[in-house]
């Protein structure tokens, strides 16, 4: 639509009357309202994290404080090992993301492209996994973890997080693989590539945007996971950010230390915002762009 011919302009002129109200008014307004809806709670937290306690408790609310403070942030690092929490979350999330992609991509490829007996049953089994509420898996998992002596070990979180995210990874990657044109793989077969090498050297490189997309979803879900992290890790210096945040008093209705909680919110979220900002162009790139043009 970059070239504009005279006909296009005529047609646009005709269309404009119908589309213009939607395009010029309803669309921008609803887009903007949605932005407010999405960001207001977060910005409020951000603002709160810099307010002094008196302003936080004030009624009516203080929208534009006259004083700002870093005390709430200082409190997080001085009274609690908050840097450790972030590090723990990072280790657990990165490891389970890599594992989920590493195990999920070949499985997805097998299900998408390779000849497989009982493919339907396998797919159904994987779908089945997504149906189990994690709570239901708890007791059995506790036993597995006790048996493998993984209590207070990062693996106690990494393994379940990988498992929980595997089905989505497999399903999404599978649909990406199915959309790939087959020519490349056919050519690779002719060139004598075996399946493993083909996946590694030809298929995966052109699905990097898909891997990144899926990986980010896994990473976020691992970073945010709460219940397993709350139960399987009891050592203070091994806790993850959500658990630490909740234990600042979020679940109790009395004496809520809003300032430090808000600061924890902000700190725990910054790495993820950076990640999304950094990768979003990649997510958005055409998924198979340029792969079969030659």
């Amino acid at each position: 639509m970059t070239t504009v011919s005279p006909e296009d302009i005529d047609r646009d002129a005709l269309k404009r009357s119908g589309d213009s109200i939607v395009k010029r008014l309803i669309l921008p307004i609803s887009a903007a309202l949605t932005v407010i809806f999405c960001l207001a709670p977060i910005l409020w937290q951000l603002l709160t994290s810099f307010k002094v306690d008196a302003d936080i408790a004030a009624i009516p609310n203080v929208y534009i404080p006259s004083r700002y403070t870093l005390d709430h942030y200082r409190a997080l690092f001085e009274r609690r090992p908050f840097f450790n929490y972030i590090l723990n979350s990072a280790i657990v999330s990165i490891a389970s993301t890599i594992l989920a992609l590493g195990l999920g991509a070949p499985a997805a490829y097998a299900l998408a492209r390779l000849k497989l007996q009982g493919e339907r049953i396998l797919l159904a089994t994987i779908l089945l996994v997504t149906l189990f509420p994690p709570i239901l898996l708890f007791l059995g998992l506790l036993e597995v973890i006790r048996y493998l002596q993984l209590g207070n070990n990062y693996l106690a979180l990494i393994i379940p997080y990988t498992a929980i995210n595997l089905p989505l990874t497999i399903l999404v990657m599978r649909s990406f693989f199915q959309q790939l044109p087959k020519d490349l793989e056919d050519a690779a077969r002719v060139d004598g590539y075996n399946t493993g090498r083909m996946l590694l050297e030809i298929v995966l490189p052109i699905t990097i945007p898909a891997l990144v997309t899926t990986g980010i979803l896994t990473f976020i879900s691992a970073w945010n996971e709460f219940i397993f992290a709350l139960t399987f890790i009891t050592r203070e210096d091994m806790k993850t950010v959500p658990v630490a945040g909740a234990q600042l008093g979020g679940a109790s209705p009395f004496e809520v230390p809003y300032g430090p909680i808000a600061a924890a919110t902000v700190l725990g979220t910054i790495p993820l915002v950076l990640l999304v900002l950094f990768f979003q162009r990649r997510i958005v790139q055409g998924l198979t762009a340029g792969a079969v043009k030659g």
Binding site: I42, N224, P242, G245, T269, V276
Partner: peptide, 11 residues
């Protein structure tokens, strides 16, 4: 629009 997704549910 994506920001709420990356916030932990606890927060």
């Amino acid at each position: 629009y994506y920001t709420p997704v990356i916030i932990s549910m606890v927060v």
